[in-house]
Design a protein around this nucleic acid. Structure first.
Lengths: 239, 239
DNA sequence: CCAAAAGTGTTATGCTTACACCCATGC
DNA sequence: GCATGGGTGTAAGCATAACACTTTTGG
């Protein structure tokens, strides 16, 4: 059992040193210029020197995993005020050539407003940082491509079964903007009337009363009602 | 980033010692005597002496997480040939009063056949082991109740969206037996005709041609078709 | 007035749910 | 022959998916 450190003498000491390093890695998604983007940091040293990698870092001695993910995001990318959710833990012995590193991956959604307000680029002390279109990525370090694939899968899944899309938008947005987010993440076109009906009948949006002025006909602005954050509306499969 | 061990001099050494211990804990579910049961091991020492805990143990230096979970199950409970899936990673600093222990929880489903064949009880060198009805549990050590709650939630969810129930049954089973598994796990009665229709139209079962003799009218036996293992049949939320 | 995006309803189909009786066997 | 669990069908309501035109604004 996990907690026999003092109760089964033979075992715990066999594992006390060396222990694996434990890190968190964060897949930070934003929606910018009609693209789903993810933040990557260029590695300054070997291994994988010059390759791009997910932001992340070591978990503090007395720090819980969620806090570690938040802190690393703040430190490396100057991002706070973000939706964070644990994704999966990757621990293949060979995933880092230098040492045994077990990483707890988190995925994060950052609203367009926060992206604009916070100076995200280059805020990292880990080197060059930039956003990459999820459909046009560079070669990634370590097993980070696999982690990213998994995160994208989870994001798509979440989008279909919860109303999470708004987390990538400003607090007020039009239905067309929301549809664009869904289309970009799911990577396929959606029917406008059906999309609107489904979102509106889900009863998670409320009109703000304001309009988005633009080049053409102004669009009604909506916000998500607070109660709707992370609602699970999956229907029952059995009666 | 998780992998800056050699690239950011200040950080890695700050974390190299002490590192957290990393364990796996396994929630092993079986279906016995019309009950959903979970395997627990009684703690022989403090803390939580006498309390029941999930089986688990330290991850080996060169062992991946899945293998560690398999090995611990084998060592502590003599169980192999089991469905294993990573559940969640729990890492609150205070979850073990002695040391920082981060545990990667796995949930496991064991078929009735395997339960019968393998000598599960007391196979553990960690002390007394027994099955507990999920609806009538003792007080658990550490944060294991929370881990178990989460596992049960995942199991229910899986059951509704995938056809995983058969993993808890023998390789041949009747529809009534399968329904009972679903009812027990979801903790509510299901309609017989609707259940049968849904399972049969899902096209994951095939009749074996055999019949289960019993006290009353014999029942047709089914097996799951191999392709159906862990099929994700979740319908799309958007057209 | 024209280009561009906003906005709006209906129909057909299939899935979900609720519901009650006969069948085959062992005793 | 009776008790027990095995086995079957239908109808109503609801959600989904496909589909095209009008409205409003800026330039």
């Amino acid at each position: 059992m996990s907690d026999t450190l003092l109760t089964v003498p033979a075992k715990p000491f066999a594992y006390q040193y060396p222990r694996p390093a434990v890190t968190v890695d964060i897949i930070l998604f934003v929606f910018q210029q009609d693209q789903l983007r993810v933040l990557l940091i260029r590695r300054a040293n070997d291994p994988y020197k010059g390759k791009w990698a997910l932001p992340g870092g070591f978990v503090g001695e007395q720090e819980n995993l969620y806090d570690a993910a938040l802190r690393e995001l703040k430190e490396e990318t100057n991002v706070s005020n973000v939706y964070l959710e644990q994704l999966y833990t990757f621990g293949e012995p060979g995933r880092d050539p230098r040492a045994r590193v077990i990483t707890v991956a988190y995925f994060a959604l950052l609203s367009a407003e926060e992206v604009a307000q916070q100076e995200v680029h280059g805020a990292s002390d880990a080197g060059e940082a930039r956003w990459w279109d999820i459909y046009d990525l560079p070669e990634l370090a370590f097993d980070h491509q696999r982690i990213l694939d998994y995160a994208l899968q989870r994001l798509r899944w979440k989008l279909e079964w919860t109303a999470l899309g708004f987390l990538l938008l400003p607090s007020e947005f039009t239905l067309s903007e929301l549809q664009k987010v869904y289309e970009t993440i799911l990577n396929e076109p959606l029917d406008k009337r059906n999309f609107r009906r489904k979102i509106l009948t889900a009863d998670v949006l409320e009109p703000t009363g304001n309009m988005r002025a633009g080049d053409h006909r102004p669009a009604k602005l909506y916000r998500f009602s607070a109660k709707a954050i992370e609602f699970e509306q999956a229907r029952r499969r059995f009666p």
